[in-house]
Structures are given as structure tokens and as C-alpha cells.
């Protein structure tokens, strides 16, 4: 039954079709053709609200066929004697199309709303830390050296966090249209990791990286791959037990590159493991983490744009995030030089 899961939104309209057909065929005379036609529009409306054009087309076609076959004279044939019914069929499709289109628009505004509220929350968190700390500095009195330093470090970290979030947003906009905007070139993984690590100055020592020294160059978008690494590490730091090591491993498999980030943490529920890459999904118990739901969803987009897959699984007293990126293009074999 598992293979039916992606099609489960068809169940309700199908059920309604069957129900209407049962009623309609029984009481055709007393209800009248017009009302039966209207009844058959109900499943079309139900499916159209999902905003899926293909599904709408399928359900509408079923409605039209049923209506034609069962009610329109001559019954039980596809012949239509009166042209007026052909118009009804077209109207079925027009209604289905218009509602699908409208519901798509509603959908996208709903997403924008979520985006805005998440964003303002995520930007406000570091910002309030910055403002709070600055007002402490402003007062000046009674601050000893170490407090002063702690405050300045906090301001710096919060600003870096804001900067990271803004960079993510910019990339997210760029990723809306991956095919045209991907700028691939030859990348060296050690180099990418080096740039990514620069973004974490305080937490630097908490990250242990091990990179296969024989890793070939990779054909990909440098900026996005760096963002992928930064987000994976950032996520690892945020959700790990304090002061434990985050490990980053990159190795070459047959025709692909495997990146895995491990952090110690209590195991994550199965459903959460699946959903954590969806946009703005955040684990229930982490609402006030000050992190952003956007990081991992961007990871997924970046990985998909490079034809790869990203998965999360529990193990070893922590959580692994694993990325597999296929090597699509191979570098020219390096001209061997003699020492």
C-alpha cells in the first residue's frame, strides 16, 4: 500500500464520485440533469483546491465521463446528441482550471506569510541580543574587563549569525531557479571546507574535519557548496550537546562524493528525520533555539540542484546528516610532473 501514499489526496474525490454516482443513478428522474451536473462538480472543487493541475484534470475527466455515460441520453454510450452537453463538459474543465489557479495563488501567499514570520523571528533573535548587549556597553559603569569582553564576543557572534541568515536568504532566492543560475566550476573540497570553517571563529575548535586527501575536484557551484557545508555544520553545532565535537567527513565513493556531519545528541524521531529538510520545519522542542528553519531546507535545495540526496539518521549516540553528490563531470587527468 505504501506506493499509494503519494496519491492519497485522490481518495476523497474518488469516494465522493462513487457516492454521487450511487445517488444520481438511483434518483435521476427526481434530481434532474442540471443538479446532477452540479453534484459532479463537487469532487472537481475538492481536488482543485489542492492546486495540483494534473490531479484536477484527472478528476474532472472522470466526472465528465461519468456524467456523459450515465445520464446524458443516449445512456451508456459516449455519443452526445445535443451539442449543449458538450458545452457542459468544457465548463467542467474551465471551473476546475480556475479554482486550481486561484488556490495556487493562495498557497504561495500562505508560504510567503510563513516565510516572513519565520524570518522576522530569526532575525530578531540575534538582533535583540545585539541591542541588549550594546545598551549594556552604553551604560558603561560597573563593567569589569571580562564582562566587557563577553559582551563584545556575544555581539560579534550574533552579528555573524544574522549575516549567515541573510546569506542563506540570498541563496534561497537564487535557488528558486536552479537550472539557470547554478554557476558550476571545478571545486576543491579541502578549499571549500577551509572557507566554511572561517565562518565559525569561536566554535572553530569544536569541528573536526577529515577529508580524503585523494579526493578529486568536483564540478559544482562554489558558493552554494560552501553554504551547504556551513549550514550542515551550523545545524550540527546548534543541536549538539554543549562542548562536544562535531565531525565532518568527506570521502570519495564510486562516482560520487559522500559528505557526512555528525553531532552528539539524543536520537531524533523517525518522522522528524524525514521532515527536517522541509522548508521552515523545526523540531518541536526547539522552538526557542534561535536557529532558523531555513538552513536545512536550503541544504536540500543545494543538494538537489547538484543531483544529489541528503538524509538524516540516528546512530553512534548522535545524529548523522549525510549528503551524496554524484560526480557528473570528471577532471582531466592532471599532468604528472616530476619532482
Amino acid at each position: 500500500m505504501i506506493f499509494l501514499r503519494p496519491y492519497r489526496h485522490y481518495f476523497l474525490p474518488f469516494f465522493i464520485q462513487v457516492f454521487i454516482t450511487l445517488i444520481g443513478t438511483r434518483f435521476t428522474e427526481s434530481i434532474g440533469l442540471i443538479n446532477i451536473a452540479i453534484l459532479h462538480l463537487i469532487p472537481v472543487l475538492v481536488i482543485a483546491l489542492r492546486g495540483d493541475m494534473v490531479a484536477t484534470m484527472i478528476i474532472t475527466t472522470i466526472s465528465v465521463i461519468l456524467f456523459d455515460l450515465l445520464y446524458i441520453p443516449p445512456k451508456y454510450s459516449f455519443n452526445v446528441h445535443n451539442l449543449i452537453y458538450a458545452w457542459s463538459f468544457i465548463l467542467f474543465y474551465v471551473v476546475g482550471y480556475i479554482i486550481t489557479f486561484q488556490s495556487r495563488r493562495l498557497h504561495s501567499t500562505a508560504i510567503k506569510d510563513v516565510l516572513l514570520s519565520t524570518l522576522s523571528h530569526d532575525l530578531k533573535t540575534p538582533l535583540s541580543s545585539i541591542i541588549g548587549n550594546i545598551s549594556l556597553l552604553h551604560k558603561r559603569e560597573k563593567l569589569n574587563e571580562s564582562d566587557h569582553n563577553r559582551i563584545v564576543v556575544q555581539i560579534k557572534q550574533s552579528s555573524q549569525q544574522m549575516n549567515r541568515l541573510i546569506l542563506n536568504l540570498l541563496d534561497s532566492a537564487r535557488l528558486q531557479n536552479t537550472q539557470t543560475l547554478l554557476q558550476p566550476q571545478w571545486c576543491d573540497w579541502e578549499d571549500l571546507v577551509g572557507i566554511a570553517l572561517q565562518e565559525f571563529d569561536q566554535d572553530h575548535q569544536l569541528i573536526a574535519s577529515s577529508i580524503d586527501p585523494e579526493l578529486p575536484l568536483f564540478w559544482g557551484d562554489t558558493a552554494l557548496l560552501v553554504r551547504l557545508l556551513v549550514n550542515l555544520l551550523d545545524n550540527g553545532i546548534k543541536y549538539s550537546n554543549d562542548d562536544t565535537l562535531i565531525s565532518l567527513t568527506i570521502q570519495s565513493l564510486n562516482d560520487s562524493i559522500q559528505i557526512s556531519v555528525f553531532n552528539q545528541s539524543p536520537p531524533i524521531k523517525k518522522a522528524d528525520l524525514k521532515n527536517m529538510f522541509e522548508k521552515f520545519y523545526r523540531l518541536e522542542n526547539t522552538a526557542d533555539m534561535g536557529g532558523s528553519g531555513i538552513g536545512l531546507s536550503i541544504c536540500k535545495k543545494i543538494v538537489t540542484a547538484h543531483q544529489g540526496v541528503i538524509t538524516a539518521y540516528n546512530g553512534n549516540g548522535g545524529v548523522f546528516l549525510e549528503v551524496i553528490l554524484p560526480t557528473i563531470k570528471h577532471p582531466d587527468i592532471r599532468p604528472k610532473e616530476l619532482l
Binding site: 566550476q185 571545478w186 571545486c187 576543491d188 579541502e190 578549499d191 575536484l217 577532471p331 582531466d332 592532471r334
Partner: peptide
């Protein structure tokens, strides 16, 4: 670019 990346590495 691949020459540069390889040799820098």
C-alpha cells in the same frame, strides 16, 4: 581552473 585548484591543493 582545474589546474589552479589542483596545484593549490
Amino acid at each position: 581552473m582545474q589546474y589552479l585548484r589542483t596545484f593549490i591543493n
